[in-house]
């Protein structure tokens, strides 16, 4: 799969001296959904803003579908659509007028049929003559997406698309994003909802303090950094872990009623079978057993806190 967006040694230092981005190098593949995760102030919005032309980079380059965003900004920007984090709109304009404005702004000839399709896809067609100030927050979010799609971009940035959106609309939006990806649009989204990235992304990047600390296939990331935990609920509480269990990384909790065992899910020998045998040998019966795998959220928290391994 070829790259549609190439970021090379991109840095940003604001006039205040704040280093928002340390040298960032990143390639986004054509047709993928890439999720950029990071805590508040990590540099996600700065990175997107530079690519879209809203913020001037301090150094480095960005090439969008073969066009440098500075030297050939017209062609580069025509390829890019942006749904910003903030719901910014002219409250007195109608849905139709604001979407038509966006298409014209990006140098595209009027195409009412295309705009109608976009509005219908986003369930906005019935609202086309309504002023933006009369719409709900979720509807305004859809309008922002319609504006970003109005000029038929090949790369779509979604900056926190689900912020302030209810569960139903979020699910609708995910479906829409998948449809867009299926139609050939490359999607780059930033999100606080790890569930969103876990649900949709093909690849995940984690940015923290202006530094891209990880870029990985989602499946590989979950597999590589994912840890599992085995929980045993004991029949009778233990005062302390017996010495005979020292070979396993165990933790006793709930007043000695529960044993937790952290293990590497990808290891050839997880040690689970041996542990269960050993408990039987030691005469420690248990009433229940369950396992759980670390989520992307666990991995994310672990990464941004500087840990190397995720804990379940």
């Amino acid at each position: 799969m070829s790259d549609i967006l190439t970021i090379t040694d991109l840095t940003k230092t604001y006039a205040s001296g704040l280093k928002a981005l340390k040298p960032i190098n990143l390639a986004i593949r054509r047709g993928e959904i890439f999720a950029l995760l990071g805590p508040n102030g990590a540099g996600k919005t700065t990175l997107i803003s530079i690519i879209c032309g809203i913020v001037t980079p301090s150094a480095g380059s960005v090439v969008a579908d073969g066009h440098d965003i500075q030297a050939d900004y017209r062609n580069a920007r025509m390829k890019i659509g942006l749904v910003p984090q903030e719901l910014t709109s002219d409250r007195w304009e109608t849905v139709w007028n604001t979407v038509r404005f966006s298409r014209g702004l990006y140098g595209r000839a009027p195409n009412p049929a295309f705009l109608e399709r976009v509005l219908r896809d986003l369930s906005l067609w019935d609202k086309r003559n309504d002023q933006l100030q009369t719409l709900s927050g979720g509807m305004k979010r859809r309008v922002m997406i319609a504006k970003a799609l109005s000029h038929e971009p090949m790369i779509l940035f979604l900056d926190e698309p689900s912020a302030g959106v209810d569960v139903e609309l979020r699910r609708d939006m995910w479906a829409l994003v998948r449809r867009l990806r299926d139609s050939g649009v490359t999607i780059i989204l930033t999100t606080h909802y790890i569930e969103e990235a876990e649900e949709m992304a093909d690849r995940i990047g984690v940015i923290n303090k202006g530094e891209l600390i990880l870029v990985e296939e989602k499946k590989a990331l979950l597999s590589k950094l994912g840890r599992k935990q085995l929980t045993l609920h004991l029949q009778a509480p233990l005062a302390a872990l017996p010495e005979g269990l020292g070979a396993w990384r165990l933790a006793l909790r709930d007043g000695g009623q529960t044993i937790d065992y952290d293990f590497d899910a990808n290891a050839r020998d997880t040690g689970v079978a041996a542990l269960l045998r050993r408990l039987d040998e030691l005469g420690i019966p248990f009433t229940d057993i369950n396992t759980q795998q670390s989520s992307l959220e666990d991995i994310f928290v672990s990464l941004v806190q500087g840990g190397k391994e995720a804990r379940p």
Binding site: C52, G53, I54, Y73, R74, N75, A76, R77, M78, I80, L82, P84, E86, T88, S89, D90, R91, S102, L105, Y106, G107, K147
Partner: peptide, 14 residues
Amino acid sequence: FTGTIYEVLSAPVS
């Protein structure tokens, strides 16, 4: 003031 300037700045207009 409203923040909609982002659209003009990110559009292919000189």
